[in-house]
Every structure is written in structure tokens, then in C-alpha cells.
Design a protein around this nucleic acid. Structure first.
Length: 479
RNA sequence: GGCCUUAUCGUCUAACGGUUAGGACAUCGGCUUUUCAAGCCGGUAAUCCGGGUUCGAUUCCCGGUAGGGUCACCA
């Protein structure tokens, strides 16, 4: 409410340690939707302060993922902005500036110990079954900080912090959550705990959306805000996304895959956004299928859930299918044709494919199963396959010849599935069982146990090919 | 283990003290039908347990149980 006339500024701040998985993506979606909803600014910032864990090519990969999804940012490393640069490794001066302020205020000091020495103290505390706190070992007369030692924050006021989160409400932490943590590492790079605060301050970020793993370190952040005497942004804790199996939070280890894999499998970006938005948030009217544009309109931080949800790819498939159904025909055609060999790139077979897939990658499976072979080559099958269970070869032959006779009389321009259905239904209704005609027809066209109906098949094949395949079946029966 | 936190059908969720606890996915059944798919109709299925507060608790409070998070020179 205090931000009512203030512009909303959010940021998505991944570290370049690998690909984007659905957890990262959902955070980005909420950041994006939250900013867009309020006519605000959405910033992409790269948190590359851990050089050891950095993975080559990650930044490009992250940008590619976000672009595929259409989550466009207003400021970022690739496009710049008023608070450039947007990579933390290029913002070291800022961190140094605020580090000096903290030193001057007596809120920071050089850590004289080596990493190994601290580790020994930690182990000892562990053995004695008491929590390790660095501040219990705080040096009396720390050396002057020259940048070669870690710079630590000095907690002056050990207390239990309480604060308000826009999703979780009132939160609190024990005083042991407060410790003299490292602001700047011995390699000169800042830690997340420090860097994000400075960046958010300088970039004017109003809302920080992040996972619940940050609840425990929030008191550390608060103590920095206090020491710097700056106003903190709104905190928005997002519920975790659990993996399909088990109850563990979804991570790269268990099933969380690269979001670009979904692109490769033929999922629609708008479907990914739709489904992922729904894990941990839901609109007031229970609307389940929405476009990214509609999401922006519907989105409200107040409707973000508190507890976590499991990722479920069956529901993703359903959402994706719903989005495929809503695609304009020219866009749909473009997508489908990408997956088809040239000889199958025919508008007529699109509906037949679309009702059988939930993602475009399923087309590949149809192709491999030979489900679409009928379209460009004569089916191969044995005589007995033509005979419906309640009839004889002789009767089947008669039925097919009758049907052929009727279809031959049909004009090429009248060769639509509706007309064909009318003709064949009339004939088959006279029989003891419709299957006595319709089954051999279908088989003559497709040569498959499972296939679309003979009417649509016939329309797709066209008059001459239809007659040709009926002739093939008839001669097979005459053998 | 300490601290923090969460808890509605199998899954995602609605409910903001009073509902036959609603919807969606999945599942099952039916319709349609020559098979498959799609579509339409319908069914099964949930408030973790125990105490309070209240005329009345899914909802508020306490305890238990179970889950998650965190305790780095990672973010």
C-alpha cells in the first residue's frame, strides 16, 4: 500500500551456473507478470559472483530461454538500462563503496582467519553439538581490510528479527540466524547476501520475489538494511515446486530439466507460462487456461500460495493441448509442418494430427509408428484384415464394390468427408452391421488397426486415390 | 540437532466462521462409433491427529504428527 503511487520494479536474478529449470522459470514468470501488471519495470540481472561455479555459456542459455518464453525485460545485460551494468561481476565498485560505508560505521571488519581455520572451529562446534556462530570467535583487533581477506559484517545488535512478507505474512527468526557473515570474499567478489542488497538499492527494486530458502537468511539482510539505514523492498516468498516423485523440492538433481528441452519436445511457450504460473498461484475466478497477456491482467501477488506444489507433466500436457487448440490456423500449420517431412506437409492432415497429440513432439511418435504412412503410400496388409468379424470375404467384396460404385459417381468437388459419410452410412445402414462395410473401407485406406475414420481418410486421399485403394482391396479379395 | 515454516480428493487448487466442501488434471463408467483419437454426459475420491474458542470450525488458538527450508569465502 505504501507503493501505491510508486512504480513497481522487479528483477529476475539468476546465477549463471547452468540451465534454467522450471523453478527458475516460474520465478521469472512471477517477476515479469508482477512488473507488467503494474506498468512497472522488469530487470534481468546476472549474479555471477561465484566464479568457481560459473558455467560457460549459461548467460546466453538463460537469455535464450527467457526469449523463447517471451518474458521480455526492460533492463538487462544485453540491452542495458539506466542502472547498467547488469552483471554483478561488473559492479564491484558499487559493492566496494557500500563496504567502505559499513567499515566506517563500524559494521564491517576484516576476517583474519583462513578458510581452514574457520572450518576447524565449525567442526569443533559440530562435535560439541552446538550451533556454530562466527561471531563467537570475532577477533578482538581485526586487521585493516586490504581486500585480500574476507570482509565480514559485524552484527552489533543480536536480536530476533520479525518482518512481514507479502505472501507469508508475519515471519520471525531466532537470534542465531544473525551472524557475522561474509560481505566480500577473499577473491574480491561480494556474496549474494551483500551484493543483491546493493544492486536492488541502486536499481530501485521494489519487490523481491524468491524461494523459501531465503527465509532463514532474511535476518542477515535486514541487519544490513538497518546498518546502511536504507528502506527494504517488499519481500515476496514463493512456494517451492516439488518434484514428481518424492516430496523434495525440485532441483536440478531430480528431474528438473532444462526449459529449452520443453521447446525441443514441442511445447508452446505460452502453455509453459500458463502451467507453471499455476503451480503456486491461481486467479480468483479459477480460470485455468490463459494467454501470457491474460496472465498479466489476472496476476496478483495476493493470490500467490503459501505452500508448495508438485510438478505434474500430465497436466502440463493438457494445458499445452488446450493452447494448441486455440492457435490460429496459420500458426498451427507452421508448427505442425516443422515436424513433418515435405511429402506430408498438407493442410488436410493437420486436424487429424492435432486431435491426437498434446505436444508437437508427439508427431514424431506418430511418424515413427507409421500412423501417417497411408497419406503418401499404398498400405500393405493381408486379405484377412479386410474381413470384419461378422462377415465373409464374399460379402466384404460385394460391399466394397457397391461403395466403389457410389463413390465413382460422386463428383471430385463433392468429395468431402460429410458427403462421403452420407453415402457410406446409407449403404452400411442396410447391412446387418455397419462395420461390415466401414471396417474394410478404413483398412483399405490406412492398412492400420487404429486409424481415423474412412470418411476423413477418403477426403484426404482424394477421389482417384480412394478409388485406387478400393481397387487394390477388391483385387486382393478376388485372389 | 537448533531455528524457521507448511498441512483440503492420487495431483494442482476454491473456500477468507455457517456450502450437500466447488473446479481442473488423472482415473472409472456411459454416449458417439468400424477401430483409434477427439468430443459430450456422469461416477469414485479430500479438510493429518488431538484438544480448545464459538451457537457453529477446513477456516481462529494450543499441542502432536508428518513434510519442506536453513544453519557456506553458493546463490
Amino acid at each position: 500500500m505504501e507503493n501505491i503511487d510508486k512504480k513497481v520494479i522487479t528483477r529476475f536474478a539468476p546465477s549463471p551456473t547452468g540451465f534454467m529449470h522450471i523453478g527458475n522459470v516460474r520465478t521469472a514468470i512471477y517477476d515479469w507478470a508482477c512488473a507488467k501488471k503494474n506498468n512497472g519495470t522488469f530487470i534481468l540481472r546476472i549474479e555471477d559472483t561465484d566464479k568457481a561455479r560459473e558455467v560457460e555459456g549459461s548467460i546466453e542459455h538463460i537469455i535464450k530461454s527467457l526469449k523463447w518464453l517471451g518474458l521480455n525485460w526492460n533492463e538487462g545485460p544485453d540491452i542495458g538500462g539506466p542502472n547498467a551494468p547488469y552483471k554483478q561481476s561488473e559492479r564491484l565498485e558499487s559493492y566496494l563503496k557500500y563496504a567502505k560505508i559499513l567499515i566506517d560505521k563500524g559494521f564491517a571488519y576484516a576476517d583474519p582467519y583462513t578458510e581452514e581455520e574457520v572450518e576447524i572451529m565449525r567442526k569443533k562446534a559440530e562435535e560439541e553439538k552446538r550451533p556454530f556462530l562466527y561471531r563467537d570467535h570475532r577477533p578482538e583487533n581485526p586487521p585493516i581490510w586490504d581486500g585480500t581477506k574476507p570482509l565480514r559484517f559485524k552484527v552489533k545488535d543480536i536480536k530476533s528479527y520479525e518482518w512481514d512478507d507479502l505472501v507469508r505474512g508475519h515471519l520471525k527468526a531466532g537470534h542465531e540466524a544473525l551472524d557475522d557473515f561474509i560481505l566480500i570474499k577473499s577473491d574480491g567478489y561480494p556474496t549474494y547476501n551483500f551484493a543483491h542488497i546493493i544492486d536492488d538499492l541502486e536499481m530501485g527494486v521494489t519487490h523481491i520475489l524468491r524461494g523459501d530458502e531465503f527465509i532463514a537468511s532474511t535476518p542477515k539482510f535486514l541487519s544490513v538494511y538497518d546498518a546502511l539505514e536504507i528502506k527494504r523492498p517488499e519481500f515476496v516468498i514463493l512456494p517451492p515446486i516439488m518434484g514428481t516423485d518424492g516430496r523434495k523440492k525440485m532441483g536440478k538433481r531430480d528431474g528438473a530439466k532444462d526449459v529449452l528441452e520443453y521447446q525441443k519436445e514441442g511445447y508452446l511457450p505460452e502453455a509453459m507460462i500458463n502451467y507453471l504460473a499455476l503451480i503456486g498461484w491461481s486467479p480468483v475466478d479459477e480460470k485455468e487456461i490463459f494467454s501470457p497477456k491474460e496472465l498479466i491482467e489476472l496476476f496478483d501477488i495476493n493470490n500467490i500460495h503459501i505452500s508448495g506444489g508438485k510438478y505434474n507433466d500430465e497436466k502440463l500436457d493438457w494445458v499445452n493441448k488446450e493452447h494448441i487448440k486455440r492457435l490460429p490456423s496459420d500458426v498451427l500449420e507452421k508448427y505442425v509442418f516443422e515436424w513433418l517431412p515435405v511429402e506430408l506437409q498438407n493442410k488436410k492432415i493437420i486436424p487429424l494430427i492435432v486431435e491426437r497429440i498434446s505436444k508437437f513432439g508427439d508427431i514424431k511418435i506418430m511418424l515413427e509408428g507409421g500412423e501417417l504412412d497411408f497419406f503418401y503410400k499404398d498400405p500393405i496388409y493381408t486379405k484377412d484384415k479386410l474381413i470384419y468379424k461378422t462377415t465373409t470375404p464374399k460379402q466384404t467384396l460385394k460391399n466394397l464394390e457397391e461403395a466403389k460404385g457410389a463413390l465413382v459417381m460422386t463428383e471430385e468437388s463433392e468429395f468431402t468427408k460429410e458427403n462421403i459419410k452420407a453415402i457410406l452410412m446409407e449403404l452400411s445402414d442396410k447391412l446387418e452391421n455397419r462395420g461390415q462395410l466401414l471396417h474394410p473401407m478404413r483398412f483399405a485406406f490406412s492398412g492400420l488397426d487404429k486409424s481415423p475414420d474412412p470418411f476423413i481418410l477418403s477426403e484426404i486421399l482424394g477421389k482417384s486415390e480412394t478409388i485406387h485403394r478400393l481397387d487394390n482391396a477388391i483385387s486382393l479379395l478376388n485372389e
